[in-house]
Design a protein around this nucleic acid. Structure first.
Length: 427
RNA sequence: GUGACCAUAGCUCAAUUGGCAGAGCACCUGGUUGUGGCCCAGGAGGUUAUGGGUUCAAGCCCCAUUGGUCACCCCA
């Protein structure tokens, strides 16, 4: 028996209301804020994803990438993130000559070869958003705002917005050095995992879950205390916008990023009740990235939000998405005896006629008993059953049964569509 | 990648010290001619995840593989 590969999921029909709901809301907000959709390939040349993340991170990251060589000998990788591909497209199509800033969003699958756990899969879907070409902290505010509004509009409660500033290449080195000094002084108290972090990626010590590290973390140097004038000003202005809008957030000095290209603003949104992988949105500013990818110096900021985690949160909070439209009419038939063929024929054509008139209709197959047809209609949530038999056919009439009211009446064949329209419009 | 727990019908779960693989729900059919929900009866549905091993005998014990769940690592 075949099974879906580890960490992949089928989206079954019963889950589609959630997906449709989120996509509709995302698209509505994107156009409200003036974001345009871009779709980039699901795979890119591997090098694109290796550039820029930083030396330490690059080794780690390669282990989690789905990399393969195509028949032309080119190394390709299923995208582990959106940002690199979108930056590539921005450069490749000369988008910097478009009205600035360029505001783009994407929705699609992301691939990372990780061990699955609650809210973490090898293929998952992200809503991704980028603003390119603008340093103004008002952009940071706008990017956070749109995420905020989505969560508000879909009825999320109890979310926690985490905010920090990790500085820029000018001010960060001093912070890192202070961190290294702080933790090196207590090196023997650190776990093996944290000792490795100390060497490879000291910033990551700040969000360590190791119990041994917790006492040291309280007194650890905070990035906000090392910001240069520009970064401090940027952070203060962003906070003034957030405060002015009354958006509640927590300044979290332990909120960091694993990759070198991040600058200034970082933020995450955490949800309760969906396990250890609680971030439903994570983003930040990356003013150095485009340059790393070979483009002109261009500021950028964006976030990614995992749709599967959003759906987990919707379910955990009991949010019920609007149902998908279904046919409310069924064309049933009694296809028995000599006249059966003509009756079936008429039913097949009637179903088509209803659908062409924009009325959703089901047609039972297999010439099953009327009883079975009605039972199926009931199960599928049909409201009106059009019953067609030998008698109706001869009289140019139809029997119309209302399943909710348990009543039925004769309707002239020619009056059927107006009759149904009248009822369906009310419902 | 590491660790713990787990895998029996589409779903939720039973199956005595190792001794003929079951129930509920869902699905299909019927309960006299063309009428749903409730009820009753019947049917279909399984190589017990896969491959080995131990045994007279394995759903049950052992090994491996695959997958699941949760946490760690990592987090773009």
């Amino acid at each position: 028996m075949y099974q879906a590969p580890r960490g992949t999921n089928d989206i079954l029909p019963e889950d589609w209301p959630y997906w449709r709901y989120l996509r509709d809301q995302i698209e509505r907000l994107a156009s409200l804020y003036g974001f345009e959709r871009i779709d980039t390939p699901i795979f890119e040349v591997t090098e694109l994803f290796e550039r820029g993340v930083g030396e330490a991170a690059s080794v780690m990251v390669e282990k989690e990438m789905y990399t393969f060589t195509d028949k032309g000998g080119v190394s390709l990788t299923l995208r582990p993130e959106f940002t690199a591909g979108v930056m590539r497209a921005y450069l490749e199509h000369g988008m910097r000559v478009r009205p600035s800033p360029v505001k783009l969003y994407s929705i699609g699958p992301i691939f990372r070869q990780e061990r699955p756990q609650a809210g973490r899969f090898r293929q998952h879907t992200q809503w991704n958003l980028e603003v390119l070409g603008e340093m103004d902290p008002a952009v940071d505010f706008e990017v956070m705002s749109i995420a905020w509004q989505l969560f508000e509009d879909i009825g999320f409660r109890g979310l926690s917005f985490q905010l920090n500033s990790i500085g820029c290449p000018r001010c960060r080195p001093a912070h890192i050095q202070a961190l290294v000094e702080h933790f090196s002084a207590h090196r023997e108290k650190l776990s093996d995992v944290d000792k490795r972090r100390l060497e490879l990626n000291p910033l990551r010590l700040l969000d360590s879950k190791e119990p041994a590290a917790q006492p040291l973390l309280d007194r650890a140097p905070r990035s906000v205390d090392f910001l240069c004038d520009e970064c401090r000003e940027h952070f203060a202005t962003l906070r003034s916008y957030l405060d002015g809008a009354g958006l509640p957030y927590t300044v979290n000095p332990r909120l960091v990023r694993g990759f070198d290209y991040y600058t200034k603003t970082v933020f995450e949104v955490w949800a309760e009740g969906i396990g250890a992988q609680a971030a439903v949105c994570g983003g930040g500013r990356y003013d150095g990235l485009i340059e790393l990818l070979g483009g002109p110096p261009t500021p950028g900021i964006g976030f990614g939000s995992g749709i599967e985690r959003l759906i987990l949160t919707l379910k955990a909070q009991g949010v019920v998405p609007p149902p998908l439209p279904r046919p409310l009419v069924q064309v049933s038939y009694v296809a028995q005896g000599e006249a059966g063929r003509a009756v079936k024929q008429a039913a097949v054509h009637l179903a088509r006629e209803l659908r062409r008139a924009g009325i959703g209709a089901l047609l039972p197959f297999g010439d099953r008993s009327l009883k079975a047809q009605l039972k199926a209609a009931d199960r599928q949530g049909v409201r009106y059953v059009v019953i067609l038999g030998e008698g109706e056919l001869a009289a140019g009439q139809l029997t119309l049964r209302d399943l909710a009211e348990a009543t039925q009446q004769a309707v002239a064949r020619d009056d059927l569509i107006p009759w149904l329209r009248r009822r369906l419009d009310q419902a």
